[in-house]
Write a protein that binds this DNA or RNA. Structure first.
Length: 274
DNA sequence: CCCGGAACCTGAAGGC
DNA sequence: TGCCTTCAGGTTCCGG
């Protein structure tokens, strides 16, 4: 499912294909996919607009339009943007199509219809509440310590809270916590300074590696060209319940934290100990 | 403010 | 074989 590394990959690969192009028209097949404004206003606001920029904030993909407005997409769990070849079943799951002035199309594919598109004047209303970008230099161990000190919820729950840090979802939270050898149920504010530093390092390392592998093709993630990412082959615990821990060979466990499947190694990630 | 749980949605997987 | 139930999870909303 698209988290920071996946949306970053989509942005990087889409950028040269769409920036500078004009959207001649948009067709929407699933009305609920357009969250804001009304469907009619969305279509007229996007039509005949030149795309002047493409960026990412957290898990959001942001198109800057010549009108000064912003087209903001969120892929939720199963969304993807396909530029050229469509997967086997062309019509199925395509919720919207953007037609470009060079005759090519951009398809918004989303089997579960959780994905959302918005057209807004000010991106701040959509992304303004997000926490810091974990791959920016300003995301330091000190900042992470300050963010965690305010929260006593399980570290797993706090890491996937977008208002705390932007872009980390279920898979990369499990990978980062495992890499830092911290139990997912540890209260966030109970981490020692050394543990916070380990976690900071793990977050940066896990996300950076996943971007260089073009994202993880769990669920329905495709890169814009229709190919898959390979980051999931490097997963050490995420979605690997029952498999041996790469550190100690004991079977990886799956528990539920805040309603989310959480994979960890009970031997490498102890609950008590500082 | 902080925390946790339900709802949204629908294909996939498991049970009988 | 096939119907039925349950599960998955990012975000938002709601209650304590």
């Amino acid at each position: 499912m698209p988290e920071l590394p996946e949306v970053e990959t989509i942005k990087n690969e889409l950028f040269p294909l769409v920036v500078g192009r004009t959207i001649t028209d948009v067709a929407v097949f699933s009305e609920k996919t357009v969250r804001q404004p009304s469907l009619g206003e969305f279509q007229s606001g996007v039509r005949e607009q030149k795309i002047t920029g493409l960026s990412r904030r957290g898990k959001y993909l942001i198109f800057s339009l010549a009108s000064g407005k912003f087209l903001i997409l969120h892929f939720k769990m199963t969304g993807s943007l396909l530029f050229h070849p469509l997967p086997a079943d062309p019509e199925k799951f395509i919720r919207a199509v953007f037609h470009l002035d060079n005759g090519q199309n951009l398809y918004f594919r989303d089997p579960r219809k959780f994905g959302v598109m918005r057209l807004v004047d000010d991106p701040g209303f959509v992304v303004g509440h997000l926490g810091p970008e974990p791959l920016q230099p300003s995301f330091t161990p000190k900042l992470l310590a300050e963010l965690l000190a305010k929260r006593k919820a399980p570290i797993k729950a706090v890491l996937i809270d977008q208002d705390v840090i932007a872009g980390i979802g279920n898979m990369y939270a499990d990978e980062a916590i495992f890499t830092a050898r911290i139990h997912p149920l540890r209260p966030a504010n109970s981490l020692s300074q050394e543990e916070v530093e380990r976690l900071h390092h793990a977050i940066v390392e896990v996300l950076t590696a996943a971007i260089s592998n073009k994202g993880a093709s769990i669920e329905n993630y495709y890169r814009p060209g229709g190919t898959l990412g390979i980051a999931h082959f490097q997963f050490r615990v995420a979605h690997r319940g029952g498999e041996p821990c790469p550190n100690c060979e004991s079977p990886i466990m799956r528990i539920t934290v805040r309603g989310r499947g959480t994979y960890f190694c009970p031997c490498s990630q102890k609950l008590e100990q500082a």
